[in-house]
Design a protein around this nucleic acid. Structure first.
Lengths: 197, 197, 197, 197
DNA sequence: GATGAATGAGTCTTCATTCAT
DNA sequence: GATGAATGAAGACTCATTCAT
C-alpha cells in the first residue's frame, strides 16, 4: 500500500475515534449508537466494522489513545522543567494532570468512567511511550519513600492516592461537587502532602 | 384495602426490588432487562409498571433502600458500643461499613456505581432515619476538628475521605486490585489517621 | 332494589358516560383508554365492565344519548314556536341544530365522527321520543315536495342535504375551514333554499 | 448509487406503500399494524423505518400518492375530450371522479377518511402536477360564476359542493346508503345543477 | 477498501380484561 | 355491586451486524 493510501485509511480511523470520543463523553457510551458515530465521522456504517469490532472495542481505543496522549504530554512538560528533586517533579506532574482535566471536561469524563486497570496496562506497556511512563511511576515512588510506609505498602499507597485524586477531581470538575475544582485543588494537595509527610 | 391485600402488594414490590438488586449488581444496569427482572421476581411484566416507571426508577429505589439499610445498621452497631470518644465512634463506623461491603460484594457494586448525590440526599432526608444519619455526620466532623483544617475545608475533607474510601474499597473488594481488602484496609485506615492527625 | 340504590347505580353509569363523552371528543376515541374514563368518572376499573362491554359499547351509548337529547331539544324549541308553515318549521329546525352544534364543539365532533346509520336508527326507533322524530322527518319531506323531485328521489335528497349540512358544518365549526360558521351558515342556507326552490 | 440499486430501493418503498394502502382501506388505519404491512410487503420490520417515521407518516404518503394519481388521471381524461365549454369540462371532471371512486372502493375509503386539507395542499402544490390542478380549480370557479354567488361566496360554494359530493358518494359507494351510487349519482348531479343554475 | 440498504432479534411499554376480595 | 391489583398479549421501535455491489 502506498503511503498516500495508508494515510487515507488513517484519516477514516481517526475520524471515527474522534467522533466516538466526543459522543461517548457527551452522551455516554450506552446512549451512543454506531450510527451516530459513523454519521459524525462522515463514513459509511460498514466502514466502522473494518476498523473496530464493536462499540466497546472503539471505546478502549479511544481511552488508550487519550490517556497516552495526556500522560505523554505531562511527561514532556515535566521534563522541560528539568526538576532536580523527584518530589517536586511528582508534585508538578500531579498538578499538571489536574489542570489538564479541569480544562477538558470530556477527557475527564472518558478517562474516569472507562480507564480500567487492563487498559492502564495497555498504556503503560506501549512499546514507544511505556518506558517513560514506567520511569515516572518509579520516580514517584522514590519521592514518597519518606512517608513511613514499607515498600509493599508504597505500591498500594500510590494506588490510594490515584483513586482519591481521580474520583475527587471527577466530582469537582464535572459536577462542582462539593465545590469547584479551584476550591478543592488546594485542599486535595494539602491532604496529599499530609499523607506523604 | 385490607391489611392482607396491602401485604400481598408489598410482597410483589419487594420481589421486584430484590430481583432488580441482584441482576443490577451481577449483570449491570444496562445488561439487565425488565423481562429478566419480572421473570426472576415471578410476576407479570405489567406488574412492573404498576410499581415503577422504568429501569432507572427501580434502580433508584434499590439504591436508596440498600443504602438506608446499610447505614441504619451501622448506626445501630455503633450505638450499641456506646463510645465516649467521637473519634473512636467514627473509626468504628468506617470500619464497620468496610467490613459490611467486603462481605456483600453485590451491595458494594450497587452502591458505588449508583449512589449519586441526589439519592444520598434522599437517604439523608428520610423522615424516619435521616435524623440519626445527620447526627453521625456531625459527630464525624467534630471528631476531625483537630486536623488543621478550617470549618469550610472540613466539609470538603469529609467528601475527600468518602471518595477515597469508596473508590479504593470498590477496587479492592471487587477486583482485589491492587490487593485484597484485608491487605488494603490497614493501609487505608493508617492513611486516614495521618490525614486527621 | 330500592329507588335509592337504583339511583346510585345510575350515578355511576352517568359519571362514566359523561367522562367518556368528554374524553372521546377531546382526545379522540382511539386515544382514550378505559383507565382514563374510570379515573375521570371516579369509579373503579372493574365497574366499567359492569355497565359496558368495551370502549365502543360506551361510545354508542354516548352518541345515542347526545343525539337524542339534541334532537329532542330542537323539537321542543320548534313546537314552542308553533309554526303553521311546514317549510318555516323545517328551516327553523335546521338553523337551530346548526346553532347548537356551533355552540358545543365537542358535541359536533362526537356526532359527526360517530353517528352511524345504525345508531341513527336506534335514536329514531326509541320508544319514547322516536315518534316525534319520525313526525319531524315526515314534515320535512312534505315541506320540500315542491322542488321537482319525485317521491323516491325526495328520500335521497333529504339524505344529501343532511350529509352536506353535517360535513360542511363540521369543517367550519371545528376548523373554521374554509371560513367560520358565521360566514358559512348564510351561504349554506342560501344553497339549501336554491335546492328546494 | 447505481440506477439498479436506486430501482431496488423504490421497489421496497412501493411495496410498503401498496401494502399499507390495501390494509388501511380494508382494515382501517387503527386496525393495521406495522407488522402486517411489512409482512404483506415482504420486507423486514426495520426496512419500514428506513422509509417512514411511523404509521401516520406512510398514511400521508399513501393518500398524497393516490389522490395525485386520481386527479392527474381525471385531468388527462378531460383534456383528451378537448371541451370548449368550461362548464361541460367541469361536469365531465366531476362525473369522471365519481365513476373512478365507484369502481375503486378502497380508493374511496382512503381518500374520504384521510384527505385532510394539509395533505390536499401538498397535492395541489406538487411542483410537477400542481400547476394543472390549480388550473382545473380556476376553470371550475369560472364555470359557476352565473349562480348568483359573489366572488367570495364562490370559494365557499366550491367547498360546499366538494363536501357534499364527497360524503354522499362515500356513503353511497361504500354502504349503498341510502341507495347504490347508480341511483344517487343522477340525483346528486341534478342537485348540483340546481345550485349552479 | 468502502458503501449503505436490509435485516430481525431484542426491548420497552401499553392497556383491555379478569377475578379474588 | 364494587373494587383495583394483576395479567400478558400485542405492538412500536431500535440498532448492531451483514453483505451485495
Amino acid at each position: 500500500m502506498t503511503a498516500r493510501l495508508e494515510n487515507k485509511k488513517m484519516l477514516k480511523e481517526n475520524a471515527l475515534l474522534d467522533a466516538a470520543f466526543d459522543l461517548f463523553a457527551r452522551i455516554g457510551v450506552n446512549g451512543t449508537t454506531i450510527d451516530e458515530i459513523v454519521k459524525k465521522a462522515g463514513v459509511a456504517k460498514g466502514t466502522f466494522y473494518l476498523y473496530f469490532k464493536d462499540k466497546y472495542d472503539i471505546l478502549d481505543m479511544v481511552v488508550v489513545r487519550k490517556t497516552t496522549a495526556l500522560l505523554s504530554d505531562a511527561i514532556a512538560a515535566a521534563k522541560a522543567r528539568a526538576y532536580e528533586d523527584r518530589a517536586d517533579e511528582a508534585a508538578f506532574f500531579t498538578g499538571y494532570l489536574i489542570d489538564q482535566l479541569a480544562r477538558d471536561k470530556l477527557l475527564m469524563r472518558i478517562i474516569h468512567k472507562n480507564l480500567s486497570l487492563s487498559l492502564y496496562h495497555k498504556v503503560i506497556n506501549d512499546p514507544v511511550r511505556g518506558v517513560e511512563l514506567k520511569q515516572v511511576v518509579e520516580d514517584f515512588k522514590r519521592s514518597i519513600q519518606c512517608g513511613g510506609y514499607s515498600g509493599q505498602e508504597m505500591d498500594h499507597l500510590l494506588f490510594i492516592l490515584l483513586e482519591m485524586t481521580g474520583s475527587v477531581c471527577y466530582s469537582s470538575i464535572i459536577n462542582s461537587e462539593p465545590a469547584p475544582i479551584e476550591t478543592i485543588k488546594p485542599i486535595l494537595l494539602k491532604t496529599i502532602r499530609k499523607i506523604l509527610a
